[in-house]
Nucleic acid binder design. Sequence first.
DNA 1: TAGTGGTCTAGACCACACC
DNA 2: GTGTGGTCTAGACCACTAG
Lengths: 237, 237
Amino acid sequence: MKYQVISEEIRHRIESGFYPLDQPLPDEHSLVEEFSCSRMTVKRALDVLASEGIVFRKRGHGTFIVQSSFQSDYIHVGTNETLGFTSLMKEKKVTSKLISFDMIAPTAEVASYLAISEDTPVYHHIRVRCVDDNPHVIEETYMPTPLIPGITPTVLHNSVYAYMEKELGLKIAGSRRRIRAEQATAQDMEELGLSENEPVLVIEQVAYLNTGIAFEYSFARHRFDKFEITTVNINAK
Amino acid sequence: MKYQVISEEIRHRIESGFYPLDQPLPDEHSLVEEFSCSRMTVKRALDVLASEGIVFRKRGHGTFIVQSSFQSDYIHVGTNETLGFTSLMKEKKVTSKLISFDMIAPTAEVASYLAISEDTPVYHHIRVRCVDDNPHVIEETYMPTPLIPGITPTVLHNSVYAYMEKELGLKIAGSRRRIRAEQATAQDMEELGLSENEPVLVIEQVAYLNTGIAFEYSFARHRFDKFEITTVNINAK
DNA sequence: TAGTGGTCTAGACCACACC
DNA sequence: GTGTGGTCTAGACCACTAG
C-alpha cells in the first residue's frame, strides 16, 4: 500500500510543521519525484488526506493545509470510525457493569435491522460503560448468536469488539448510525447519575462485518456532558 | 465525469431492483465491457457506491448490495451533506423568524474558528427556522462581512446558502461539525416550544468555501423530536 | 486453479486559476 | 501561456476467495 505510506508521511509532515501552514503543499509532480511513484499514487495519497479534512485541493491552484482547530473537553468520536468504546478511550480505564444478559428471540424490528428471521436467537445485553469509574454510557445490544459464539459475561465485562477480532477472527467493516437527543429515562438517571432534566445523546447503530452481514444492533445512551460526535464533510467535486 | 455517470446508472439499477439483492453485481471486467471504459473507471464508480454504504466489496469474492433499511419519522441529514436547512426540507415550506441581526467584532473564539483577526467584523444573526410553521431549530451564525457582502434581513428570511451560490457565485466545499445533546435553555423553550426538561440536539459547525476559507461558524439547536443525523461509515481497507 | 477486487504504472487530455 | 489538479486509459502484478 504505497499510497498509505505516502499519505502517512505527508500527514506527519503537516503535523510536525514541516510544511508551512500558509503555503501550498508541493505539487503532485514534485511528490512523484520524491516518492518515486506514479502520479495516480500521489494523488490517491493526497485524496486520503483531503477526505479527512486535513488538506484542501483546488484545481489549477494547489493543495493547501486546512487548519483544524477543534478542541474540546468532550470525548469525541469521528463518524469515520467504527470503534468499540474501549478502544476510543485509549489512555483511560474502561470498566463495564453488566445490567442484563440473555438470549432471546428478536422482535420484528430487531430482526429486520439485523436481516435475520425472528426464529434466529440473539444475544441481548445491557451494559453501563465507565471511564475511570465514572459512568459514561448505557448500551443495549442485540447480536445474532450464530455469528458471535462464545459471548459470556467475562467477555462483556471487557470489549466485545476485541473478542470478535482477536478470538473469532472476524473483521468489522462499517456501520450505520442515527444520532439524536432524548430526555433521560429513569434508568439513565439511575445508571448514569443524571438528574431529571438532563438529556442523553442517543446513538442507534447497525454494525457490519466485512462479509456484509449485520452483526450488531445497538442503542447507546451517552451522558450529554461527556460525549460528542465530530464529522468532517467534503463535498464531491 | 464518466465514473459519476456509471455510478448513477448502477445506483438506479440497484434501487429499481434490476440487480437481484442476493446476487453479486457483475464483476468489473463485465462492467468494463458494458460501459466501454477502463477498469479503473468502473472501480471508481463502484467505490463511490461503497463509500455511500450501498454496496459492499470483497476482494476475491465480488461486489454485493447492502440492504439498508433505515426508515424514520425524523428529518435526518447525512453527514456527507453540507446543506442549508432550506434545501433539506425539499417538499416543505420553510420560513424563518429573524431574532437578531447585527454586525459585530468577533470574540477571540469565533475569530479563531473563522481564522480571521478580531478586527474583521462579522455578521451575527439568530434565526428560528420553521417547517410548515412549526419551529424546528434555532440557529446562531457568524459570517465574516468581507466574504459575504449584501446580507440583509430579506436574505435571512430565506436561504443564505442559496444566496451565496446563486447571487455571489460562491461554492460551498465542506464543513466540520460537532454534535452533542444539551438541556433546553430558556430561549430554546420559548422559541421552539419545548418544555423544561426536554433536550436539544446541538450542531456546531464551521463551513468552508471551495477556496478553503471558512465562511460560517454556527450553532444550531434542534428540537430533539424533529431531527436526527445519520451516518454511514465504511472502514478503510 | 480460476476468478475476484486492490494497487500501481506511465502516459494522455482536460478544466481551472493565475499571469 | 504555464502550472495546477481531475479524469481516463490499457495494461500489469498482487492478495484474497472459492472449488
